[in-house]
Design a protein around this nucleic acid. Sequence first.
DNA 1: TATTGTTATACTCTATAACTATA
DNA 2: TATAGTTATAGAGTATAACAATA
Lengths: 169, 169
Amino acid sequence: MTASAPQRETPTSPARKRAHSGKARRNDAHEIGLDALVGHAGYAVRRFQIWIFQDFVKTLASVDIKPTQYSVMTVIGANPGLTQMAVANRLGIERARLVHLLDSLERRKLVKRVKSKSDRRSHALHLTAPGETALAKFKRLAAEHERHVEDKIGKGNREKLLEILGGFT
Amino acid sequence: MTASAPQRETPTSPARKRAHSGKARRNDAHEIGLDALVGHAGYAVRRFQIWIFQDFVKTLASVDIKPTQYSVMTVIGANPGLTQMAVANRLGIERARLVHLLDSLERRKLVKRVKSKSDRRSHALHLTAPGETALAKFKRLAAEHERHVEDKIGKGNREKLLEILGGFT
DNA sequence: TATTGTTATACTCTATAACTATA
DNA sequence: TATAGTTATAGAGTATAACAATA
């Protein structure tokens, strides 16, 4: 497994710059064997996850929404009135981190915290009216991103993937 | 998509602690709908990737090796003499970050940097003798981790996953 | 006593930029 | 001029711990 895979040239990109010696050829990215890594699901999954997040960020760049922000707004939109703890637990986000995520979404007037009357420790989370409108647009862009995934791995494979990993949501 | 999914209780874990009111039931993690997220490959992939990395770290905890360290040692082991740039490009790691990764592996005497004679700017990377022995052990533990993945998603599904994502390595 | 939201801290990872020594 | 390795810094993300208000 490994870490980042940013906008490197792809293996198939045409004229890769390379050093002048013939020896440098063997350093061309995909001539270097991965050995045991090829048999590790985690390695492939990590590289794919990086690709997919980068495409998501790119596709939603015009609205400046990151995957985590999208997931938070989507869950609040579908379940108005949730507490912060409920959202954090559902999405596997630290509650301490959710505080900052919500601060930023609230500053942008997309989400609001409403003091709960039944339990005055907690907040009920809601989308604002502009938040609802914005989320609808985010969803359209996210669907576009999802089509990029289809183009990349194939329609059937994407469905198979969702089926295999359905238990992790 | 979302962020972390640490050692929360699983959906199927028996006696989840919950608040005393009946109302609290609807905040039980998996009674909260994910709405559009269920159709996003990236969300499932991210949750799965977190699970898989956590299992890898747990399974290799006795040898204190993280996924990225494992990937670096594996590639060097299979391609002795590579430069830092070649390893960084192959694995999609920033060259600045690889410096620190190698510092730590070199301090542990698992890897060595050898000054290249043909290009005195660069280092040829090699495993040390103890590094070779250690890597063999890491690979055995990583194979054990891989069996956990099989247990989790099924043998056939794991193979299908590797097939679908083979292009991202 | 326990929980919700909050603040704070440390550590990892990512993204850059700049420096040095070579080429 | 450009590249390999290094150093440094800033920003996310993750993992904790502790605090105030409330249960």
